[in-house]
């Protein structure tokens, strides 16, 4: 079974995603790339902040938190079941 790409902000906690597209632009795009939010890379949705936002992601064995403004512009496909 395959999954349609969804924004990371909508992927539930605990899911592993393969990134497909980054729609963020400018310096923030550069920063995201440097941190490993690169199309093709695999990330895991770890944990929401107590107030729901930001969300922490596991990328390249590091934990990075993003606000929904950015994570809603990063797209990925769910991996596995």
């Amino acid at each position: 079974m395959t999954f349609e790409p969804i924004p990371l902000s909508e992927a539930g906690t605990g899911n592993k995603m393969r990134l497909t597209r980054i729609e963020v632009t400018g310096v923030m795009r550069r920063r995201l790339l440097d941190l490993g939010f690169v199309p093709g890379n695999e990330i895991e949705v770890l944990q929401k902040s107590p107030l729901g936002d930001p969300i922490a992601f596991r990328v390249n064995n590091t934990t990075i938190a993003l606000r929904s403004e950015e994570s809603s512009l990063i797209w990925g496909k769910r991996l596995g079941g």
């Binding site: 490993g36 990328v59 390249n60 064995n61």
Partner: peptide
């Protein structure tokens, strides 16, 4: 050593 991928960048 615990996150080499990103660090190697």
């Amino acid at each position: 050593a615990t996150s080499l991928e990103r660090n190697l960048n």
